[in-house]
């Protein structure tokens, strides 16, 4: 049981927490937080693998580190888009939840979609 393996297990646990949060929490914002926790768990796992790959005088394998940085930026862009959608839903006055009021099959009054 050395450092990287410990954090690897910690990453696995974080992914588990994130998944639980994503499934159970009814609030979309909490789901976004859950998604971010899963993301950080996956990146922590990647970091563990990077650290295990330390060789040739480097603290860690540079390739996973680069992919990690790219992954974090992608995760941030995803969160930004999700939050923007959430705020637009809030502006529209709709109840901020993922459950649609009238489920699409009974949407008798067909809203005018262009």
């Amino acid at each position: 049981m050395n450092g990287p393996t410990l954090f690897g297990l910690c990453a696995a646990a974080l992914i588990g927490f994130g998944l639980y949060g994503l499934i159970v929490n009814p609030q979309p914002l909490r789901k976004i937080i859950g998604f971010n926790i899963i993301g950080s768990g996956v990146f922590l796992l990647f970091g563990t693998i990077a650290r295990r790959g330390a060789a040739a005088g480097m603290g860690g394998d540079p390739v996973p580190q680069a992919l990690l940085i790219t992954g974090i930026v992608v995760a941030f862009s995803a969160t930004a888009l999700a939050v923007a959608l959430l705020l637009r839903l809030f502006d529209e006055g709709g109840v901020v939840t993922l459950v649609s009021e009238a489920s699409p099959t009974e949407a008798k009054a067909d809203p005018p979609d262009a």
Binding site: G3, F7, C10, F43, T48, A50, Q65, L68, I72
Partner: peptide
């Protein structure tokens, strides 16, 4: 944690 894993670039980004 990233500092503990000796990955400074990632620590900065995080």
């Amino acid at each position: 944690v990233w500092v503990r894993l000796a990955l400074p670039d990632v620590a900065l980004t995080e």
